[in-house]
């Protein structure tokens, strides 16, 4: 027992070292221990505190188990030890848990919640709407007619209040490096605040099981300096300048391209699809080759997604892909 207890604790140290290493660097944009906002930072700090206290608690119990191993061949003591149980099992946990409860559920919960609509923060915050779909994210900006998909651009060091809802099943909006998650419920609108302390690209992913392609429902948050963001928003509001008859024939039942007769909003808005970094909600990078692959066989790239097989010829695929990639 003792040996194994040591071995387990040894393994644990190695593992914790690994966590610390990952928390320190080599990020991939979806790491709750590498926060880039005060909110996510306070949650990560809380985790390290809880981990410390928990490790101590576990050590106490392991010590008791190891001690019992040493007592294995001795005479039993008839000394009643109810007092030990009352102290270790009631008094100490009550204090520790009361502290955790007050700190996290009275103070921390406020700091990480969306600001109340009447507050100053809410007034100066950028407000955007995210609508969940099987299996992609619709992103709407209040100014102009800006609708995009799977990529959220925000100004850095600015509070952003995201109103989330769903068009079909329950999804969950989660950018671990920026804040805690919030479910997207059909028929309800929930709010979550995101804030990026430094410019960069942060990954998010649907966290509530939503069907066949729940695994491929990612998105990126791009936090840019305010002027870059303003330029992006301006560009994004521009309607498309070119029209494709093939697109109107085959794709406009579901997709919108602002400035053309294609106005359907079943699938993602494609007005500026050429400027996005990924396709199919983070499944593949956005290149001409991938675009062709996607248009030709969407069900092979992301089986079970809502885009049907269109049975196009290679030439049509190429024409459409080229057209769409030109929509910057």
């Amino acid at each position: 027992m003792k040996q194994s207890g040591d071995r387990i604790r040894g393994a644990r140290l190695v593992v914790l070292g690994g966590v610390a290493f990952l928390a320190a660097g080599c990020g991939n944009g979806q790491n709750a221990l590498q926060p880039h906002s005060p909110q996510a930072g306070s949650i990560a700090t809380l985790w390290w505190i809880m981990l410390g206290v928990s490790t101590f608690g576990l050590a106490v119990v392991v010590a008791l188990l190891v001690a019992s191993w040493f007592r294995r061949d001795r005479e039993g003591r008839e000394r009643p030890a109810t007092v030990t149980v009352v102290v270790l099992g009631i008094a100490v946990p009550v204090l520790v848990i009361a502290a955790l409860f007050s700190y996290s559920d009275i103070f921390l919960i406020r700091g990480t919640s969306a600001p109340s609509p009447t507050s100053l923060v809410a007034k100066r915050a950028l407000k955007i709407t995210v609508v969940g779909h099987q299996f992609w994210w619709e992103v709407r900006y209040p100014s102009g007619d800006v609708v995009t998909a799977n990529e959220i651009h925000i100004p850095v060091r600015t509070p952003v209040v995201v109103s989330v809802t769903s068009s079909d099943v329950i999804h969950s909006f989660w950018v671990p490096e920026l804040n805690r998650k919030m479910d997207l419920e059909p028929g309800r609108t929930n709010q979550v605040e995101i804030y990026a302390s430094k410019a960069g690209k942060y990954r998010g992913q649907c966290a509530e099981f939503c069907g066949l392609q729940h695994a491929h429902m990612a998105f990126y948050v791009f936090a840019d300096p305010p002027d870059v963001f303003a330029r992006w928003l301006r560009d994004e509001a521009r309607p498309a300048t070119r029209t494709s008859q093939l697109f109107l024939d085959r794709c406009s039942n579901c997709h919108r391209i602002q400035g053309t007769p294609a106005t359907a909003q079943v699938g993602p808005d494609l007005t500026h699809v050429g400027s996005r970094t990924t396709l199919a909600a983070g499944t593949i990078t956005n290149t001409l080759a991938h675009m062709e692959e996607w248009i030709a066989h969407p069900q092979a790239v992301k089986p079970g997604n809502q885009m049907p097989e269109l049975h196009l010829t290679d030439a049509q695929v190429h024409e459409l892909a080229t057209y769409l990639e030109g929509l910057k």
Partner: peptide, 23 residues
């Protein structure tokens, strides 16, 4: 938070019983 307490009571009752006896 409250539901934790019955569990901690039991954890320490088991482990102290093991120490106090002759396992």
């Amino acid at each position: 938070a409250m539901v934790v307490i019955p569990s901690t009571i039991q954890v320490f009752a088991w482990s102290t019983s093991m120490i106090a006896g002759r396992p």
